[in-house]
């Protein structure tokens, strides 16, 4: 993308403000939405604005990766919320806000804190000489001094992923998934009782 502060400062400023305001508005919509799916995708829109700002800062790789990851993340988040809430498929309207007082205090506090850092903080003013170098620098950083940290985190995450897939897989610990399976009983050699099955047992 050929958008950059060195080309047209005014253009970049206008774009920055549009993205920033758009991000905040979308973030506000997250709390006004009445459905889990809608809330998740408003959050994605907010992230998209942030990604745009990162692109403006020439952090192109970070901006694009943010977009790439968040597309999947938000969908998964919506799916998980739907799975955990008693709201069929997220289609019924529902109130997405609760614990109002705590939420408002935490939200306003975090916003003011970050805004204070942004306004009063001292940022180094180092003009970017070669924009194409940013991605390479990022790579050197990730695989240079910080390699140990990232590799540890990465391998741990991979192990978690493989573990959870093994649990959820077709041949999970409860037997083949498509034949129906039951969790083992709590006491060894006791009969399995599914939650809510007691009524059927009384009848039979």
């Amino acid at each position: 993308m050929t958008i950059g502060t060195d080309h047209a400062p005014l253009f970049a400023d206008v774009l920055f403000w549009m993205l920033a305001v758009g991000s905040v508005l979308a973030g506000w919509r997250v709390f006004r939405a009445d459905s889990m799916v809608r809330a998740a995708y408003w959050l994605l829109a907010s992230f998209a604005g942030t990604a745009g700002i990162l692109l403006l800062l020439h952090a192109r790789f970070l901006g694009l990766i943010l977009l790439l990851m968040m597309a999947g993340e938000m969908t998964i988040m919506a799916a998980f919320m739907v799975m955990f809430m008693m709201n069929p498929a997220g289609l019924n309207p529902m109130n997405m806000v609760h614990q109002h007082r705590t939420a408002i205090i935490a939200g306003v506090g975090a916003f003011l804190g970050l805004a204070a850092v942004g306004v009063f903080g001292e940022f180094p003013a180092r003009p970017l000489l070669d924009a194409s170098q940013v991605t390479a620098d990022l790579g050197v950083e990730l695989l240079g001094d910080s390699m140990m940290v990232f590799e540890t985190a990465g391998v741990a995450l991979l192990a978690t992923m493989i573990g959870s897939i093994a649990l959820a897989a077709h041949r999970g610990r409860f037997g083949p998934a498509d034949e129906g399976s039951e969790p083992p009983a709590l006491v060894p050699e006791a009969e399995t009782v599914r939650p809510g099955d007691s009524r059927d047992e009384e009848q039979s």
Binding site: S181, T192, G196
Partner: peptide, 15 residues
């Protein structure tokens, strides 16, 4: 009303 929940084939309660 919202759908009732019932046991699915894996013993979980779902809509």
């Amino acid at each position: 009303p919202l759908p009732e929940r019932g046991n699915d084939r894996d013993g979980l309660q779902l809509d």
